[in-house]
């Protein structure tokens, strides 16, 4: 009876331990990127990309409260597939990437908003200004890499007002570069 009781205790403790810890992941920059879209002269939208995303993810599918994500986007990696424009975007008029090489997001709370959808609130920092934003993120799924390590990934689309972060250049009522910037961040992460 005592043995059974001890075994039950061990199993309970083990179960509790598994339940208490969410999985830790590291963002894979090779399969992660940030894409942005901004209106140009009121006529169309121009797209750009920052392919270098790094960071970490703590994820428990069953308990969103345990989840956390920290992302850092390398602002120096901006590419719009036009050398002249990239140089201008990297400079002080826009991303000022030599002075502020990283755009970061650090979650402060996660809420489940659907089967594979989460509402994530966190601190978004760009150009030395930090603002709290809430984004909707989709959990894309699970996979395995060639080394057999578990992978999982998320994607989120959200919009910011660039002037909230002091990126005021080129904004005008009659045209210029739009205030609102739509950002898509998609990342793949490797279980540690």
């Amino acid at each position: 009876m005592v043995v059974v009781s001890k075994m039950a205790s061990v199993m309970l403790i083990s179960f509790a331990a598994v339940a208490a810890f969410a999985d830790e992941y590291k963002i894979d920059p090779v399969h992660s990127s940030a894409v942005f879209k901004v209106n140009h002269l009121g006529a169309s939208n121009t797209y750009g990309m920052m392919p270098n995303v790094t960071g970490s993810l703590t994820f428990d599918k069953g308990d969103a409260a345990k989840n956390a994500v920290e992302l850092s986007v390398d602002a120096t990696s901006v590419s719009t597939f036009n050398g002249g424009r990239d140089k201008h975007l990297s400079g002080p008029d826009f991303f000022n990437s030599k002075q502020f090489p990283a755009i970061t997001f650090k979650s402060t709370s996660w809420k489940k908003a659907g089967d594979n959808t989460y509402e994530i609130t966190g601190k978004f920092a760009m150009l030395g200004v930090t603002k709290e934003i809430t984004v909707t993120a989709d959990h894309i799924g699970y996979g395995k890499n060639r080394g057999g390590k578990e992978l999982t990934g998320f994607e989120s689309t959200f919009t910011i007002d660039r002037t909230d972060f002091g990126m005021n250049y080129g904004v005008a009522d009659t045209g210029g570069v739009g205030k609102e910037v739509t950002i898509i961040i998609a990342f793949e992460s490797v279980k540690q």
Binding site: F81, N82, G84, R85, H88, G170
Partner: peptide
């Protein structure tokens, strides 16, 4: 400026 601009199509602010 020309070195970069000539690599790509024309870019005007």
């Amino acid at each position: 400026y020309q070195t970069v601009a000539s690599e790509m199509e024309e870019y005007v602010y």
